[in-house]
Amino acid sequence: MQLAKVQENFVRTILDPSALEGAGASPFGALFQENGIAVSDRLAVYRAHVLNGLAGALCSTFPLIETLAGAAFLSAAARAYIHETPPVEGNLNLYGATFADFLTRYEPARDLPYLPDVARMEWAKNESYFSRDDEALDVQVLQAIPPEEMDDLVLLFRDSVRFVESAYPLPAIRDFCAHQTTESSSEEGGEQKQETMNFDSGASRLLIFRPQLRIFVLELDAPEYLFLQEIAAGQSLGWAAVTVLKSWPNFNLSETLQKHFGLGTFSGFQKAPV
């Protein structure tokens, strides 16, 4: 058997339990020496290692899913996801990009409709964590720009900037989870009454980014979120402001800009094409 065929069969046998079961009697299984241990048992060692490794990577990227739905749920969901979407490259930090979408289709998650958005938040944090290190825009540089040209500037975000919008209160869910894990890890946890979570207490809009080494998760109001979304879509400052002002006449452009210059949300700017 050609190397390409061997490898194709090997991958299928590891990812698909029915292929593993039949491996002993298949032409692929006949490629291997038995030496006292069944070929399917030998291949199962690889299968276990691959699945445990990938499931472990997913569990460490999506810890809130474990808190909300339990370790058994996450482990089963991870295995179903691996079967459907194995990694395509050798950097495990980038594995799980479509896990949130998978959860929207995953039958056992049907009664936990907020779960995919929680996973989106965790994935955004993961991407932010592994984004490129870069510098915040030096506001001094902006001061050299004549005020009449400011409207035409297109601001560029830091590499770590991600946006998440949800019909669910993601920051409250995150705080609830943090409370759960502190409780279960503290020995006198029984004294405290289990806090309840109202998952339907409203929408949330998040800006997630890493100014330096620590990740920030900031909740934004609707006009500020829309403004940053317009900028992310490549609109000039002037256009972005006009778009927001249409729905929120009290939107304060200069205050919003000052806030984000202070936070270091932007990395640079371009002039809008005339």
Partner: peptide
């Protein structure tokens, strides 16, 4: 060893047949 075939990159160091082709 090898890890990738087709669209899958498995996080393991999988064994090779020691042949001229390999």
């Amino acid at each position: 060893s090898w890890s990738a075939s087709g669209n899958a990159h498995l996080n393991d160091l999988l064994p090779l047949p020691y042949t001229e082709e390999t």
